[in-house]
Design a binder for these strands. Structure first.
Lengths: 401, 401
DNA sequence: CAGCATTAGTTCTATGGTGAACTTATTTGG
DNA sequence: CCAAATAAGTTCACCATAGAACTAATGCTG
């Protein structure tokens, strides 16, 4: 029998085979029992059994003490929980943000080993990014006494549309200096490992689906309210990319064709009213000092009517956009994320109301199971980097080096 | 060997098996050669070969004279074209429209055997619809001396959202008298055959995908400009239904939250400016006589500047809506359908321009293969009924009786 | 017109995955 | 405390599917 290697098991072509499916499930969900794997994958118990015995023999899969949270007590033989061998490999996730670069190192059993962030000057170049990422990754591996030999792959989340065909950054990108860049060319020499690239929001959706608020959901919409407004559409467990990687750009829906100019070159984009950029500007005018979104949210919590109104106005605008999404897609679930969700129900309640007012199918008109549910996202700061790790684990997205 | 029956082959559970796949491909695409089936399905040539010899022996599949349009001339052994045995069964497709009921009878090899339309009073009841459909189907079978014993299933397209869970018509439906109706209860006793139900626009998308302008495309958006504005989103070959069956309701995107009231109960819907309802009203004011959309299109063709402008205004409004869809979904293909496309480039050109102005990813910024293509739909009058037949052939959509 | 290139379709065999029947390990209840 | 109930996990025979090697039927080229 050939020795089974995790590296090749995470490769694209093995994804369809039972062995690939089992490894993928373990890498996505952490610890599982053989019975759970069979149920989740739809494979026969027997297939899972033989597959796992091979994987255990070659050391890719190990037993863990971790108990099954779904099955406490009850009759029957207790399950033996299995997970991927944490020593079998590590993944790097990187976020190329507008003003920051984040890097995390995670093992294949999901644990985050290290996490580093570096603030960047606006309009930094791909070369600068490569330097920073190299340094951050090196530091992370050194600090935790890890060997980079175990590196399975690198996932890159990027703030802007990525061409799903070739992994290049689109000219229409919101990161103008990166336009046309082939990310694999920049990072390939750094790692000599498969590199996976996707849009920041798509990665965030992947993170929420694999580990967060959308766990177990195959269909949902991620709606992110932060400095900008963005998101992603997930259908059948797959993130919609769009022909040009431009899907899910909720912030740039043309709300008012005669409205003010947006940085994207169009007029009256949703982002101009539904992000917290205008919101912060107004709050700073009112209090005559620099404020963070968190400051405004805190003041609103403490009862400041002005700050409350700003949040409500933002929710009203966002609800209009989400209402349109509801009318077009009618998703079962909307995961609301971005720093704005820290306002909690102060945001979510008026958002739901505004959505309800603007969307076609009203909640009262349909049975409860046909309603669009709203939940806050689980991750706020690091959703995209986490999703970048998810890219490696799922081996989605674009061609390896 | 068990006798192979087409009825059971079109059943859901056999869809995954090679035999099921082969039958499905033949039912969707009409005549194909064994080699084509292997290529399209991804199955091995050998598997297709053995499967087909079984199917031929049991009379489900027959040879046809029809030549392969894709392969004229060239070297190599000529293909023997196969199709489902037209005598093996018939399908009924029905459209429950706002003011009309359409019924077609088709054989499994795609040929339309009969087609009938009956104009109805507005707000007709389900019972009246059942009577009309029963009469139309009976007439069709009698006129063509067919036995209803060969009826494989009935597909119903309906003008309004259908709950994907149970096949019931939503209360939010645009057909108010039908709210809450379980279509299978109404038509089940009529036919004693599996009944499949879906929204009119979703059926239209299926028709364009199976036989029309979107053949071979797994991802596209159907945008229909008629009396109302509607459409459907297709991803990975599956039509998005939405939790409440409300997806693809492009006509009811809230364009102007303070605009005029729409029949749906919201304000400023796209339909109010982008359908040809307002358009006809203005043209009739201008010419002081009753006009059909075709009249206006003809006059525009003949050079009437007023009529041209009306078409351009409609395209402008529709382009705004499509631009939003482009920003959200970024589809590779938009199939524009509905009676409005009869205007041809008079509509499509300004529509493309308006789309380009309102959408995020501009055509000039991306390579040609990443652009959103616009094509007119192939079917105008009978897309939905055709799609209803498609429902039966694909055995999609909601639970049989 | 012979031989080669090209494409279609068939046959046979190795094998991977399934389902049924089995063993193993635990709780529950009389 | 033992048997029944329940669930996890294993073993093995069977069969559907893929792949390779084959035959068949056509056009092209010199």
């Amino acid at each position: 029998m050939n020795k089974i290697e995790l590296k090749s098991l995470l490769a694209d072509r093995t994804l369809g085979t039972p062995t690939g499916q089992v490894v993928r499930l373990l890498s996505e969900r952490g610890a599982l029992s053989a019975a759970q794997i069979a149920r989740l994958s739809g494979l026969a118990k027997s297939t899972v059994s033989t597959t796992l015995s091979d994987l255990r023999r070659s050391g890719v899969v190990v037993e863990t003490a971790e108990a099954d949270p779904a099955r406490t007590g009850g009759a029957g033989r207790p399950a033996t929980m299995l997970s991927l061998n944490p020593d079998a490999g590590t993944c790097v996730g990187a976020l190329i943000g507008l003003r920051e670069i984040q890097v995390i190192v995670a093992d294949v059993s999901h644990a985050i080993i290290a996490s580093h962030t570096e603030v960047m000057d606006e309009d930094y170049s791909p070369a600068e990014a490569a330097d920073v990422i190299r340094a951050l990754v090196r530091r992370a591996y050194r600090e935790h006494a890890l060997s980079t030999a175990g590196l399975l792959g690198v996932g890159v989340a990027i703030a802007g549309p990525v061409n799903p065909r070739d992994g290049r950054i689109q000219r229409a990108s919101v990161v103008p200096t990166w336009a046309g860049t082939d990310v694999r060319e920049v990072f390939g020499p750094l790692f000599q490992r498969p590199i996976f690239i996707d849009n920041e929001s798509n990665c965030a959706a992947l993170a929420e689906m694999m580990w967060g608020a959308a766990q177990g959901h195959e269909d949902f919409v991620l709606f992110k309210i932060d400095l900008g407004v963005g998101g992603a559409i997930v259908h059948g467990g797959r993130v919609l990319t769009g022909v040009a990687g431009g899907s899910g750009e909720f912030g740039h829906m043309t709300i008012d064709p005669t409205g003010p100019l947006c940085r994207c070159g169009n007029r009256g984009c949703l982002e101009l009213t539904a992000s917290f950029k205008p919101f912060l500007r107004l709050a700073q005018n009112r209090f005559r000092r620099a404020l963070t979104p968190e400051d405004v949210i805190d003041m609103a919590r403490d009862g400041d009517v002005g700050c409350r109104r700003l949040i409500i106005d933002c929710a009203e605008a966002a609800g209009h956009g989400l209402g349109i999404i509801g009318t077009i897609i009618n998703p079962p679930l909307v995961v609301v994320s971005g720093r704005m969700v820290r306002a909690g129900d102060l945001l979510l309640e008026p958002l739901r109301q505004s959505f309800e007012r603007h969307t076609l199918v009203k909640n009262d008109d349909v049975p409860p199971e046909s309603r669009t549910r709203f939940v806050p996202g689980r991750f706020v700061e690091n959703d995209s980097v986490l999703g970048a790790v998810g890219l490696v684990l799922r081996h989605q997205a674009y061609a390896p080096v």
